[in-house]
């Protein structure tokens, strides 16, 4: 029989890893859904109304609304909630469009390595000068949820982007 004291540390690590369930196979404790929509402005009975529909005839220049909803399915609060959304390919983030109740919103211009508030980001130009980052420079959007999300509670984060 094995004497556990003599099992090399590497082998122990391998045995422990083998028994650890991968994250995607765990029962879902928090549910996340993400959708892409267009806003359609219509006039009903003389009143201008805005409704949303799945993306329709998306051509360059169109504005897309991305909404992520998350729901705590567990029976205890979820903490340290952070939602990270890379700006979709071939799209430009629409400035000031990121929203989410109870969140602090930050952005990255370096591919998701570092995040800062919108007004605090800079980029370096080809000539070596620095300039404030524009929405077109953003690569990622991050929502940091304040506090905890109670059992059964939901939250929402959204932003808009233009198709290049």
């Amino acid at each position: 029989m094995f004497n556990l004291r003599h099992i090399p540390a590497v082998l122990v690590a391998v045995l422990l890893t083998a028994f650890q369930l991968p994250a995607h196979a765990a029962p879902a404790s928090v549910e996340v859904k993400s959708i892409a929509e267009r806003e359609i402005v219509g006039v009903t009975n003389g009143k201008k109304e805005t409704r949303r529909a799945p993306v329709d005839k998306a051509v360059p220049g169109d504005e897309i609304v991305y909404t992520t909803t998350f729901r705590n399915l567990a029976d205890k609060p979820a903490a340290n909630i952070v939602i990270t959304n890379p700006v979709p390919n071939d799209s430009i983030y629409k400035g000031d469009s990121a929203a989410g109740a109870n969140t602090v919103i930050t952005f990255s211009v370096d591919g998701g390595k570092q995040y800062a508030a919108a007004g605090k980001l800079s980029v370096r130009t080809k000539e070596g000068k620095t300039r404030p980052a524009q929405p077109a420079d953003y690569t990622h959007i991050r929502w940091t949820y304040k506090g905890t999300l109670g059992a059964g509670k939901s939250g929402e984060a959204s932003f808009r982007a233009f198709i290049k």
Binding site: V30, S34, Y66, A78, P88
Partner: peptide, 9 residues
């Protein structure tokens, strides 16, 4: 579009 959610659970 893909979203990553990190949290304690």
């Amino acid at each position: 579009n893909s979203v990553l959610l990190q949290c304690s659970l």
